[in-house]
Design a protein around this nucleic acid. Sequence first.
DNA 1: CCTGAACGGCACGTGCCGTGCCGCTAATGG
DNA 2: CCATTAGCGGCACGGCACGTGCCGTTCAGG
Lengths: 211, 211
Amino acid sequence: MPFHYRGGVTDKRGSRATDRTEAIMRTTLELGEEIGYAKLSIEAVAARAGVGKHTIYRRWSSKGALFLDSLLSLNKSDLDYPDTGDAVADLRRQIHAAIDLLDQPPVGPLYRALIGEALLSPEVAAALNDHFITPQAEKTLGRLKAARDQGQLSPGFDLDLAMDILSGPLYFRALITQKPLTHEYVDRLIEALFTGMGPEPKPESQGPART
Amino acid sequence: MPFHYRGGVTDKRGSRATDRTEAIMRTTLELGEEIGYAKLSIEAVAARAGVGKHTIYRRWSSKGALFLDSLLSLNKSDLDYPDTGDAVADLRRQIHAAIDLLDQPPVGPLYRALIGEALLSPEVAAALNDHFITPQAEKTLGRLKAARDQGQLSPGFDLDLAMDILSGPLYFRALITQKPLTHEYVDRLIEALFTGMGPEPKPESQGPART
DNA sequence: CCTGAACGGCACGTGCCGTGCCGCTAATGG
DNA sequence: CCATTAGCGGCACGGCACGTGCCGTTCAGG
């Protein structure tokens, strides 16, 4: 069931409506993979899905809104965090899972396009933040906070900044410089975050411990 | 003079052609600020600039290409790096200048839209990388490399990773979470990069505290 | 079974795209 | 100084997708 900005919250729609909704989103992803988001048109989705354009416009206010819902409908597992007691290991595992999902085909290119659309459309940006970016960040922040409360991180640990340093470089690579995201890169990033890349040469290279 | 993907490299165009080119780019920025990039149309630019559509299409292959050139034409100083001998201070100064230019109106919203367009158009993405992202990164890498060669950084210092950690969080904030970029934030980021945010409370100093 | 909301199909007006043509302008080279 | 010619503004065109209106049909809930 989509977030569909238009359409009431009541949602007493029956099975027929649900069928249409799912068929439209499925077709959207299908066409999106084939021709790319930029060339995607609501007319084409309607035609292939065997649906009237009204049926789409009744549910979504724009191509971006439709695409956002379609993509998020894939995010079944929702990238939930493990909590094994070892915060760094949990972070590592979760971020590995995130890049495997979000940076690889078929989702990767579509997610990339979705962010592009969000940068051009404030409505899509707000919806993307509310329904994906923020919830995801909350999970990371929650895990970090638990670690701090358990004494695994210093009391003054800046959760938000750590969050940015964990996510920022990944988005920067995926969206801007378009270099590959690998597990190895994530590991280097995490190590750098915790041990620093100090102006003075580091005493020991490997391991999370420093000094 | 624009990069204009179409149009020969010979460029024996006279002053009239240059006048038109500059007028078009000026009008593009003007209209872009007024109604936003998304609603910008080449027809509207042509009309306001008092120019035929051909005159635009002769120079640029797309709205994105025109917009890219128009924006880059503002980047006079090119965000050149100082080299005072203190690498960290130089980095700090340069990044402060960068966010003052790129994240504040009028450039901020336009640059944001440009990246959105780049995420939807491979051609624009390639041109943006070639003409701005990569050159800018090279400058940062060059400054870091000089610092490493001078012994201010450890011999094994990962230049590329440091580059990502310096840029990534800023783009992440500006583009994704849409939180403000302040000099104070940049300072915290730089400190975290070099000193780390260690898993265990740091022995000396009071850690990467906010302040 | 009945009723009404939702639906598919079709058509319409609108806006912008990218291109072709036409007559003019102005920079260039002899 | 003038002839040449590329570049130019203006206009029109076909094409496409948008978003909406209408009409007859379908189907789920009462």
